[in-house]
Amino acid sequence: MASKMENIDKPIDILDDANAPPIAEKSGFLPIETNWFDRLFISVVIWVAMSLLWFRFIEPLGLSIWISNVIALALAAFIIAKG
């Protein structure tokens, strides 16, 4: 059942054997360790959140949504490269 996560850490320990080839994981500025997919995901999440907030609070002031998109894209590039 759901709760089986209770031991998800323990069995993983079993996995921590020589079998697991070391994958180069650089540690970026994000507080958790991530691969490129995670960072892409995070970027998309941020982009959507920014867009929605932009629609609500900033667009009525007259600033186009494209500004938000550009910022989000830059942020995404930064996160994916450096995260």
């Binding site: 059942m1 759901a2 709760s3 089986k4 996560m5 209770e6 031991n7 998800i8 850490d9």
Partner: peptide, 9 residues
């Protein structure tokens, strides 16, 4: 962890 997993579902 069990609690969290339950909460999750």
């Amino acid at each position: 962890p069990a609690v969290m997993a339950t909460v999750f579902i």
